[in-house]
Amino acid sequence: MSFFKDAGHLFRFVGIFVLLFIIFLVARGYVVPKSFGQYGHYRGAAMGEIAAHPLHFAGHQACETCHVDVQDVKKNGKHAHVNCEACHGPLAKHADDPASMTPTKPDTATLCVRCHAASAARPKNFPQVQAEEHSTGLPCETCHQPHSPAMTAGGAK
């Protein structure tokens, strides 16, 4: 029994360690977020937070629910596969509540040349013009209907 009598100070020591370990576990439980490790070594809830960011671009599906007339003009033209917001800009606000925000009409003088200004770096088969020679300063929409830009007999349609 003399062994246990002398070992009393060791038990107190072990007791302190056990207590500190319990404090560590409790503190860790509070500090580490619950979703950490749900899918891997990261906070699983972060994905939900990122997925909850607000939209700025509504997506062409949203535009087409109302603007069927524009869709009809576009669908047979060269711009059939150009999404609305490629030219009109991000309009999720307008799609959510059309009354709250009215989009401004893009200025064709600056808009069209973004894509159609002649450049040797652009693919050869892509329609390009030297704006000054091509239009002599007239706005593009004088002759071209932006939603279906091909020239037709009798001018812009």
Partner: peptide, 16 residues
């Protein structure tokens, strides 16, 4: 935030 809602990315949406 877009692809998880069934939309495409902003860059793909805007690419003419």
């Amino acid at each position: 935030h877009r692809i998880t809602k069934g939309l495409t990315t902003a860059c793909c949406e805007a690419c003419p």
